[in-house]
Each structure stands twice: as C-alpha cells, then as structure tokens.
Design a protein around this nucleic acid. Structure first.
Length: 162
DNA sequence: GCCAACGTTGGC
DNA sequence: GCCAACGTTGGC
C-alpha cells in the first residue's frame, strides 16, 4: 500500500466536509506531476488530508482511496472552472480519484510541527514554495504524522482496511 | 529550444 | 493582502 498527501483549502472543502459527505471525487487537479501521482493511486491507499491556504495550515485527518484514477469529467464541462478546451475526449488529459474520510486528527497537525519531524525533512511539502497538491508520503512519514497527532498508526491502518 | 511574461499557489 | 516560488505559455 502507498501513502499520499492531498491538499485542499478548508474554506472550499475541508476535512469536516469530507466527513459530512462521506465520499468525494478528487477532481480539478490540473498539474501533470500531481496527475501522475493520482494515476498511481490504488483503492485502499491512505492519504493525509492537508489544509492549505488556511490560518493554521496542516494535516486535518486521514482519507482512503475508494476509486482508482478515471476521467475527470470537469475537463469537458465548459461551465466548470476546470474546463480544459485542449483536452481530447479520446485521450483525456486529466484524471480524478475518489476518497472517503477515515479518521479526523484530534486537532490539526500544524505545518510547524510537521517540519520538526525528522522524517519530513526531505518531503516536497516542507520545501519553501512547495506547490504540489498531490504528493507521495513514505510509510515512515505517514506513521510519524499519526504518532505526532496522538493516533495509533498501526491500529488505524488495520481499521482502514476494507 | 530558450526564456520572459504571466498566472497560480500557499505561507505569512 | 503581499509576495516568493513555481509551472505553463508563447514569441522568437
């Protein structure tokens, strides 16, 4: 199983929103590197749900991939902000996955705290000017984040298994 | 294929 | 709201 980190602006769609709706299509990703990571995701992979552009940026909870990469319909919807006039329906450029809420963190694990974790030193997340909205996370980084949040990483991974 | 201009991201 | 960092675009 792989681990990932997904960024979302809590003002637009935060972890509480994911808990409310249960499952949510992760669409609107329009960056090739991020898209390529989406395409590597497999059902059951766990994701850290990160709040960006917020007063307290950080990880708010854990999500699980419930559907592997498939065509992001918004790229063909002229009314959508994510419309891509260049995309060819025969060979769609953009993909989306589907995620569900697994476990909220007791409180948001702040970026400052994440930066202080040795496992996260090499992550693109903690690099200045980081813009990647979907990024891979090592098992060590995932475990360190859960431990720092006060959760039992092993227990959660077991419980999250479908 | 270079690179300046532009638009967007995201911490602060 | 500011601005640095980054990805993308498009003229040449």
């Amino acid at each position: 199983m792989s681990h990932w980190l997904l960024k979302s602006e809590p003002d637009v769609f935060g972890y509480p929103d994911l808990e409310r709706v249960g499952r949510e299509p992760w669409n609107g990703v329009r960056n090739y590197q991020a898209r390529n990571f989406l395409r590597q995701m497999m059902v059951g992979d766990l994701c850290l749900f990160y709040h960006s552009r917020s007063k307290a940026p950080g990880i708010a909870g854990v999500a699980r991939i419930t559907r592997a990469a498939h065509t992001d319909d918004l790229q063909f919807d002229p009314a959508s902000a994510y419309f891509d006039p260049i995309s060819d329906p025969q060979q769609p450029r953009w993909s989306m996955v589907e995620v569900e809420a697994v476990q909220a963190f007791p409180e948001v694990l702040t970026l400052d705290t994440i930066r202080a974790l040795p496992e996260w030193e090499t992550s693109p997340l903690t690099r200045k000017g980081a813009r990647l909205s979907v990024l891979p996370v090592t098992a060590e980084q995932f475990g360190a984040a859960l431990t720092a949040a006060g959760l039992n990483a092993v227990g959660l991974e077991r419980a999250a298994r479908p």
